[in-house]
Amino acid sequence: MTTTLPTAPTGPGHPQPFTGTRTLGEPGQIDAEGVCAWFGGRLVLETVNLTMEQSKVTALIGPSGCGKSTFLRILNRMHEVVPGAQLAGSVKLDGVDIYGPGQRAMETRRHIGMVFQKPNPFPAMTIAENVLAGLKFSRSTPGDKDDLVQEALTKAGLWNEVKDRLGELGGALSGGQQQRLCIARSLAVRPRVLLMDEPCSALDPTSTLRIEQTIKEIADEVTVVIVTHNMQQAQRVSDYCAFFLAAENQPGRVIEAGRTEMIFGEPTDQRTFDYVNGQFG
């Protein structure tokens, strides 16, 4: 990579977050310990302990409503955006609790990026502006904007399709292209972890394959956590897998977690076996 790394803004007395050995832009490891979540006083997620390995792809699977998205959003402090949402437990990025004192949500979200189910580029911005939006928020100035745009779009597998139309509006792309633009936008701030909430569920098979390819390519630069309902996709892209389940009127829990081959090949729990084999009912 030729561009200079944008660095986290620091001011005098500014609490230095994530003082692990790695800096912004290198893949990080997330340890979630005892994570619980509530919506309006209703417990929806109970005591989740999960480690998301550095530079690996972790897939979260499970039936609808079992709290996968909730858990994912807790990992980058997006949960607290919802009114009435509460949580407990700790989430450590390279050993530093992102919910610890002095940690700011904005700062955390710059280190732990997120891609949503529905593509959501900023429609009033051009493609290039979309890619650079995150940097504008943190007021960091990349060495060379054009290089950074190209790099991020290349990593997201979109560069060849849009290199001649960087000045067009972000809303003018197809759904699959928009989703890759969102991935590029997240990558441009050089997060250490990228969270993806069903990134392909609104896309056609070709776009899905492109994005899966992208995930594999970026995995050595950024730790990826992906929620998916597609078992084949989980098998294709992930190194580790965690199975969430919520019994009726019960909060969601992690039933089983481990290497993907294990979860799909030789699960220890009957329910996991049923789910990954499509016998869930």
Partner: peptide, 23 residues
């Protein structure tokens, strides 16, 4: 449904499956 005021006792399934380290 379990709501969670402070210190409420809640039942849970086996704790061992939950804390399974990923690797």
């Amino acid at each position: 449904t379990q709501s969670a005021p402070e210190g409420v006792l809640v039942t849970t399934t086996s704790a061992s499956t939950q804390s399974a380290p990923v690797h």
